[in-house]
């Protein structure tokens, strides 16, 4: 019943109109540019990356909330489109999303119990009201909400409780695919831990296929079975969390990991990236990371590295994929 999530060459480009000139020119922003990965049934993929790297666009593409420019997403062999017709709506029964901003995703005029119940009303009209209520009560217990919270309106709950309402609404359908877009980044650390525990409890009971997006590496390490690092709409490294987050190979992953403070051990040597991430409208030629990479070689400016699997690791970097480049001296200069 559970399916594999498979993504092939997924891309989403936004057209931007430049203002100010007499003739408006359109430029293309490549928010997501050629993603290919698989998530096995019951597996949880974590996606990390800095702001603007295309994480949230990826989440919405995976569920077909926005149409893709090219490429395709299939779940359990079924193609996920983005045309909101009846078939698309039926498919929502199997896949749900958890939002980053819980207050925005809740209707301010409806009590939270009725909002948790709503997916059941939509997809299982044959259930009796009592059966629905029982299921809502059960799922609210699972996420740690008391039943009396259900009679409240979203603005009467705290941030953590609202996020749990969102999680309960997604889980009440027992989805096979759950995409979480920074579900805990708006919460303070104690509530983050509670919500993550709720996630893991429910995963143990009812193993769904998941995609978990976060910019917090520690959260991802705790919850994911596989981690993808994104930079400017592309995956630069993907693999098991203990490899990607402990012995990262790609210079960008190394910089990300070195920025996480560790307790009890001497601080790692920080790799400070110079400069901001490039404007995604003008992605640099060659490797998109070469403008900030401390290990940049001449080939990086000319040739875009592909995501290549070798010896169990999957990285998009010339230095790793072809060790002969490592002998060439680092060319600093117009970088930064």
């Amino acid at each position: 019943m559970k399916g594999e999530l498979s993504v092939k060459n997924l891309a989403r480009h936004f057209k931007l109109r430049q203002r100010g000139t007499l003739f408006a020119r359109t430029k293309i922003l490549k928010a997501v540019d050629g993603l290919t990965f698989n998530v096995a049934p019951g597996e949880m993929l974590g996606i990390v990356g800095e702001s603007g790297s295309g994480k949230s666009t990826t989440a919405r593409l995976l569920l077909g909330h926005i149409p893709s420019t090219s490429g395709e997403v299939t779940f359990g062999g079924e193609k996920i489109g983005a045309v909101p017709n009846l078939a698309w709506r039926r498919m929502r029964r199997r896949m749900q999303m958890i939002y980053q901003d819980p207050l925005g995703a809740l209707d301010p005029r409806i009590t939270v119990a009725r909002q948790i119940e709503e997916p059941l009303v939509v997809h299982f009209p044959e259930l009796t009201p009592d059966a629905r209520k029982a299921r809502v009560r059960a799922v609210m217990g699972d996420v740690g909400l008391s039943f009396h919270h259900g009679e409240r309106f979203p603005h009467e709950l705290s941030g953590g409780q609202r996020q749990r309402v969102i999680i309960a609404r997604a889980l009440v359908m027992e989805p096979e695919l759950l995409v979480c877009d920074e579900p805990v980044s708006a919460l303070d650390v104690s509530v983050q831990a509670q919500v993550l525990n709720v996630f893991q409890d429910i995963r143990e009971r009812n193993s769904f296929t998941g995609v978990f997006i976060s910019h917090d590496l520690k959260v991802v390490r705790q919850i994911a079975d596989k981690v993808a690092v994104m930079y400017l709409g592309r995956i630069v490294e993907i693999g098991r969390p203990d490899e990607v987050l402990h012995q990262p190979l790609h210079p960008y992953s190394r910089a990300l990991v070195s920025a996480v403070p560790r307790k009890g051990r001497p601080a790692r040597e920080r790799i400070i990236l110079s400069g901001d991430p490039p404007n995604p409208v003008d992605v640099p030629s060659g490797c998109p990371f070469h403008t900030r990479c401390p290990e940049v070689r001449p080939v990086c400016r000319a040739l875009r590295p592909e995501l290549i699997s070798d010896a169990g690791r999957t990285v998009a970097c010339h230095l790793i994929n072809d060790p002969s480049f490592a002998g060439v001296p680092v060319t600093k200069g117009e970088a930064a």
Partner: peptide, 13 residues
């Protein structure tokens, strides 16, 4: 706004 998008993404008509 989020609530209308969320309702659509739940699969509401």
């Amino acid at each position: 706004q989020g609530y209308a998008a969320a309702a659509r993404e739940i699969g509401a008509s």
